[in-house]
Amino acid sequence: MSYIKIIDSRFENPCELPFASAIKAGFPSTAEGYEQDSIDFNRDLIRHPEATFYGRVYGDSMIEAGICDGDIAVIDRSVEAEDGDIIVAYVNNEFTIKYLDLSHRNQGYIELRPANPAFNPIRISSADDFKVWGVVVWTIKKWKS
C-alpha cells in the first residue's frame, strides 16, 4: 500500500527557477534562447496557498498512475473531490493516496482504488473513520539522483 507524509507548502521565500517554455518531445529544435520565463512552484503550482500542501509518497500502489515511491504530490484541500480523482484520504488513522471510486454509493460504500493490480481496493463504509483530506492536483517526480 502507498501512504503519504504531508509537508507544509507555505514557504516564506519564493524560489524562482529559469523556465524553458517550449520543450518538444519530438525532434530537437534549433531555436535559440530557450529560457523565456521563470517558474516558481509556489506561484505556478498552487492556486489556493492556504489550503495546499506537499506530500511525499511512500509505496507503489499508484505506480500505474505514474505516482511512484518518493514522488511529491501537490494536494489542494479546497478542491472538491469527484469520482475518479486521485485523492489523499484519511482512513482509520492513516493517510493514503488512491483513486476515488463513488460508483457504489447507492450500495452503501465507496472504494479507494489503487493503480497497481497487486493491491486490492479499500472499501469504505459508514463504520470507517474516513475523510477526503485533499485532491492531488500535481505530482513532482525525481528521475535521477
Rank of each mutant, 00 (worst) to 15 (best):
G134E: 01
E12C: 01
I72T: 13
P114E: 04
E50H: 04
F53Q: 08
K144R: 05
G66V: 02
L17I: 06
P18M: 07
F11R: 05
G26S: 03
S29F: 02
V135P: 13
C68V: 03
S145T: 13
I140S: 07
A31F: 11
Y90E: 04
A118P: 06
P28A: 03
E32D: 15
I23L: 14
F130P: 14
V91N: 01
E80L: 12
K144D: 14
E16G: 05
Y3D: 15
S9G: 10
V137R: 08
F41M: 11
L112N: 11
A51L: 06
D71G: 06
D8M: 07
D83Y: 13
A20R: 13
R77C: 05
A118T: 12
Y54K: 01
Y90G: 02
A89M: 13
V132Q: 09
V79I: 04
R56L: 03
S9P: 10
L112R: 01
Q107E: 15
A73T: 03
W143T: 03
S2Y: 03
E111K: 02
D85K: 03
Y99K: 09
C68S: 07
G84E: 07
G33A: 00
N93Y: 05
F11Q: 13
E12I: 09
E111G: 03
E111R: 04
L112M: 06
S9Q: 03
G84A: 06
E12F: 03
P18C: 01
S103T: 00
A89T: 11
N93R: 05
I87V: 08
I67Y: 15
R105C: 04
A118H: 10
S145H: 14
N120I: 06
A81S: 08
D129G: 01
V136M: 07
K131D: 15
T52I: 14
P49T: 07
I140V: 11
Q36A: 03
I97S: 09
R43F: 06
E80C: 05
T139C: 13
R77I: 04
S29D: 15
I140K: 05
P117G: 00
I23Y: 11
I4D: 00
I7A: 01
V79F: 12
L100G: 07
N93L: 08
Y58G: 02
I140D: 08
V74W: 08
P49C: 06
Y90A: 00
W138D: 14
V132Y: 13
S61N: 04
G55C: 07
I122W: 12
S78E: 15
I7T: 05
R105K: 00
V74T: 10
